[in-house]
């Protein structure tokens, strides 16, 4: 193969991928940083206002509440999804039809549209026709009935079960295959040394799959930052911004309040915050694995 033609092939072959990816993933990130310096309603002239949008963000209580809700989601994913998925992976280790059926069922929400998932859970929580309140009535706990999604104090926590329900299957399968990849000899050796049951899980299995757990935690963090659809469908960020996430707040600022500059500044903050969170989690989990 002569060098000229393979050079041409390299350039020609990489061009479409670089172009589409650059234009629709990379350019927007750079542009949102740029638009963040302007006061702009989306129509007409942009007015350069320097760091004013960012200064406003820092003092904006709704922004901080959105960030807090995002962090609640991340924590629920890391301390809810991951342990539940690990427990299920340990319990559902056999290949009987029952266990295979349950694994598939738990994974099923992963292939469904979040719109439908959000709507189903909206019905479950509905104050008048929701099956959750019907259920509480039926078992004599009518006093526990709540306005699950319209009570500002609890709405954000009501979003956690659907969140876990939708994504736990992914982590279950990740952990299941990691556990299955542990060679049988290691377990035999552990057994000879007297490590059985919980002790084997804690001292042998978990340390071996710890890197998988690390990956899962990073996935949880980046995944939780992506929960725009579920929140938008179920609450639109309300009531009174109680369930606002950074992404829904960005959406509402831009397309409901027509503040494109401010919305762009929030986009930039989302990129920075998610990089910061992923970096921190990587640092934390790698430190933990070194010390153990």
């Amino acid at each position: 193969m002569n060098a000229m033609s393979s050079r041409k092939f390299i350039m020609f072959g990489l061009a479409p991928a670089l172009l589409i990816y650059g234009l629709f993933v990379f350019v927007p990130v750079v542009w949102s940083a740029y638009y963040g310096f302007f006061n702009w309603s989306g129509f007409g002239d942009k007015q350069y206002i320097g760091l004013a949008n960012y200064a406003e963000i820092i003092q904006d209580s709704t922004f901080w509440r959105s960030l807090k809700n995002n962090i609640i989601f991340v924590l629920a994913a890391v301390f809810g999804q991951v342990p539940i998925a690990l427990a299920l992976a340990v319990i559902l280790h056999k290949n009987t039809w029952m266990q295979r059926f349950l694994r598939s069922a738990i994974f099923l929400p992963m292939v469904m549209s979040t719109v439908v998932i959000g709507m189903v859970w909206q019905y479950i929580y509905h104050p008048q026709i929701g099956i959750l309140n019907f259920l509480l009535d039926a078992i004599g706990l009518s006093g526990w009935k709540l306005n699950w999604l319209s009570d500002a104090g609890i709405a954000v926590y009501s979003l956690i079960p659907p969140l876990i329900w939708s994504f736990v299957g992914l982590y279950l399968i990740i952990f299941s295959s990691a556990l299955q990849n542990i060679p049988g000899e290691i377990h035999d050796a552990a057994e000879l040394d007297g490590a059985i049951g919980w002790r084997r899980l804690a001292y042998i299995s978990l340390p071996i799959i710890w890197t998988t757990v690390q990956v899962a935690i990073i996935l949880c963090i980046s995944g939780s930052l992506k929960s725009f659809d579920l929140v938008y469908i179920m609450t639109r960020g309300g009531p009174a911004h109680a369930t606002e996430l950074l992404a829904t707040y960005m959406y509402n600022s831009t397309f409901t309040s027509y503040r494109y500059g401010y919305g762009s500044a929030i986009s930039t903050m989302i990129v920075l915050i998610s990089l910061l969170l992923i970096g921190t989690s990587q640092w934390l989990t790698s430190r933990k694995s070194r010390s153990s």
């Binding site: 927007p28 949102s32 960005m250 959406y251 986009s267 990129v271 990089l275």
Partner: peptide, 21 residues
């Protein structure tokens, strides 16, 4: 590396600038 970095960018952060684009 340019492509791999893309996996870290939260998809929703591009909604507003992509709309403008």
């Amino acid at each position: 590396a340019f492509f791999v970095v893309g996996m870290l960018i939260p998809i929703h952060s591009t909604l507003v600038p992509l709309f403008i684009l």
